[in-house]
Design a protein around this nucleic acid. Structure first.
Lengths: 233, 233
DNA sequence: TAATTAGTTTTGGCGAGCCTAATATTTTAG
DNA sequence: CTAAAATATTAGGCTCGCCAAAACTAATTA
C-alpha cells in the first residue's frame, strides 16, 4: 500500500520539491523558502507558490513565513524518490560502469519515470544493496532509512589508517576531484600529516600522496563508528 | 555530430509528435492531422497548433490543410527517439526479463530522458542488437534504418513451417494475446489449415494447436524474404 | 451547381511551472 | 529600539501542452 505510486500522479517538479525539503529538514527542522529555492535553482516566488499548493495536497506542513516540514505522506514520497535515485545510481555504477561523478544527472532524470517493476528488477539484479556508490543509505521500500555515522576525515589523527565510507554527492565537480585522487568509498587512506590552523591534510591514498583541504576533509566519512544515532549539533 | 542532442532541447511532447509522424508517413507520404491526433490520443486543435510550432522550428514540412511530412532534421530526431525506444525495449526483455508485452510503456517514458552514455552502455551490453524484441529494426546511431520484408502468416499455405520474425508492437492487448499463445519472434509455427472465406488459420506453435484470425495473421511477419536499405526523402 | 460532410484550423480558456517587480514581515545590527 | 538587511509573499505575466466550440475549406454526392 505504501509506495503504491502510479507513476505520474505526482509531477517531476513536486517530487523534486519533496526530496529537496527532505534533505533540508535533516539539518534543521524546518526548511526555509530561500534554502529550497537555492537547492532547486528556482526563484523564491516559485517556491512560495508551490509550497501553498503542496500544503493543500497534504504533503507539507506550512508554518507561514517560517518554513515547511514534510507530512508523513510527503516524507514517504520523498523517500521513495530518494530510494529510486540511489538505486539507479548504484545500477549505473555497478552494472553500466559509469564513473561515480556522472551518475547523479542521469539518476535525476530517471528517478521520475521508472516503474516499480523496473525498480524491483534492478534491485534484485544488484543483490538488494543498502548503500549507493557514494556511501549513502538507500531507503527501503517501506520508507525507512538507516543513518550511518562516520568519523570525518578531518578529525582523523596523523598516522591513522581509515577506509573511506562516504563522500558527498551534492557537488559534481568536487566528486570528480575526489574520484581523480582515488578518494571513493572503499579506498584506504593513511593520514600522514595534519597542518595546524585549519591547514591542509596530507594523506596517502592507494600509494599516492595528496593533500586535501580541511573543508573537503569534513565532507568525507571514514570508518563506521556506530549505527543508529543522530547527533548533529 | 548527428544525434548529439543534449537531452532536453526537445520536449517529450515534441519527440512523441515526431515519432508518431514518422510512423504515419510510412503508410502514406503525408501524415494527416486527424491521424496524428488519433495516434497520440490528443485533440485536433492540439495537433494543429503543435504542427505550426514544429514547422516553424524546421522539423516539419506543412502542406496547409493537407498534412505534414518530416524534414530531414525532424526525421533524424524521430529515428533517434525510435532507436532509444527499441534499444530500451531490448534491454528490458534481455536483461531485466520483462515480458514482451510490458516493455512498451516503460520504454515510452524512458526514451525521453536517457543520455547518450546510457544508450552506449546498454547497446554494448546487448551486443549491438539490430532488432527489438518484437522483431522491429533498431535504427543506427547515424539515423539509418533497415527495412526487413517478411511474409505474412496470413499468406502462408497450409502445411508450411515458418519462423515468427515480427509481431506488431502497437497494441498491448494483442501482444499479450499472442505472447500467451507462444507467438513471439523466434517461435516456430506450422500452418495446419486455412479456412476459406477469410476464415481462421489453424496453426501449431511449440506443440500447441491454436487458431488465429486472418486479421491477426496479417500482422505477423514470418521468415526473411530479403533485406534492403530504405531510402526515404 | 448546391448541399452535405469530413477534415482542418481559429478562437478562447485552463492549469502547471516558471519568472520579475513590488510589497510585507522578520531579524539583526547599530 | 529603531532602521537596514534578509526573507517571504503577492501581483502580474510568460510559455507549453492541452481542450471544446466555432469557423472554415475541400471533396463528394445529390
Amino acid at each position: 500500500m505504501l509506495f503504491k505510486k502510479q507513476t505520474n500522479v505526482l509531477t517531476e517538479s513536486t517530487e523534486n520539491f519533496l526530496v529537496a525539503i527532505y534533505r533540508l529538514t535533516h539539518e534543521r527542522s524546518y526548511a526555509r523558502t530561500k534554502d529550497i529555492a537555492e537547492s532547486l535553482g528556482v526563484s523564491l516566488p516559485t517556491v512560495s507558490e508551490k509550497i501553498v499548493r503542496m500544503a493543500e495536497h497534504g504533503y507539507l506542513d506550512h508554518q507561514w513565513r517560517h518554513g515547511v516540514m514534510l507530512t508523513p505522506e510527503g516524507r514517504l514520497i520523498a523517500l521513495r524518490v530518494l530510494r529510486t535515485h540511489r538505486l539507479i545510481e548504484t545500477f549505473l555504477v555497478n552494472v553500466l560502469k559509469y564513473p561515480i561523478d556522472e551518475v547523479n544527472d542521469e539518476a535525476c532524470r530517471l528517478e521520475h519515470v521508472v516503474s516499480e517493476r523496473f525498480m524491483h528488477a534492478i534491485d534484485s539484479m544488484l543483490g538488494y544493496p543498502t548503500v549507493d556508490p557514494h556511501g549513502h543509505p538507500i531507503p527501503t521500500e517501506e520508507g525507512t532509512i538507516e543513518v550511518f555515522e562516520y568519523h570525518l576525515l578531518a578529525d582523523v589523527l596523523a598516522g591513522k589508517k581509515v577506509i573511506v565510507k562516504q563522500v558527498s554527492d551534492r557537488d559534481r565537480d568536487q566528486l570528480h576531484y575526489l574520484k581523480d585522487m582515488g578518494i571513493v568509498p572503499g579506498a584506504e587512506i593513511t593520514v600522514l600529516e595534519v597542518a595546524p590552523f585549519d591547514g591542509p591534510i596530507s594523506i596517502n591514498v592507494e600509494g599516492k600522496t595528496v593533500a586535501v583541504s580541511q573543508s573537503i576533509a569534513r565532507k568525507i566519512g571514514v570508518n563506521v563508528v556506530r549505527i543508529r544515532e543522530l547527533f548533529k549539533e
